[in-house]
Amino acid sequence: MKKILLIVPFLLTGVLLVAVMADDDEDHRSIGRSIGDVAVSKDATYIKECGSCHFAYQPGLLPKRSWVKMMNTLDNHFKDDASLDQKTTKYITNYLVKNSSDNAMDYKRSRKITNSISVNQTPHRITKTPYFIHKHDEIPKKIIVQKEVGTLGNCIACHTAADRGIYSERAIKIPNYGRWDDD
């Protein structure tokens, strides 16, 4: 899994793209189109209501069909009660759908997550999407179960800039382990 650092002068459009971390495993054609990993979530209501029990996952990490399903079953949300009043539920559902991964295909991770899921599947978790599984299948279990992390859903414990929508390898720092280097 070698990572290549590409310097792509983006002459045609007049934009200078400084450096792009390209994955060796997926389409190189679309590299230049990426405008970031995932769109940052800034909505105050979303962060308050969906960021109280865990990291406020960016809407661009799951397709709309997953969000709609989740928002219809908040009273039994992974065995927890995350129910909200009707007005707030509707507001957040709209926000999630509008910014879902399949509506944010200009963002690199959103595009890769979307493309990894087959059309007849509706994953309940980000951590159950094929792209996510593929990226995390080499992490030793003992690193995940330690108190500072607990579950793979605790993105920000390892991805120190996750709240800014940045998931690149350079911004990974695993507690009691340090920087990740898989080369």
Binding site: C53, D80, K147, G150
Partner: peptide
């Protein structure tokens, strides 16, 4: 403190 379900 720490959430027993999510470690947040």
């Amino acid at each position: 403190s720490q959430n027993a379900f999510t470690n947040k």
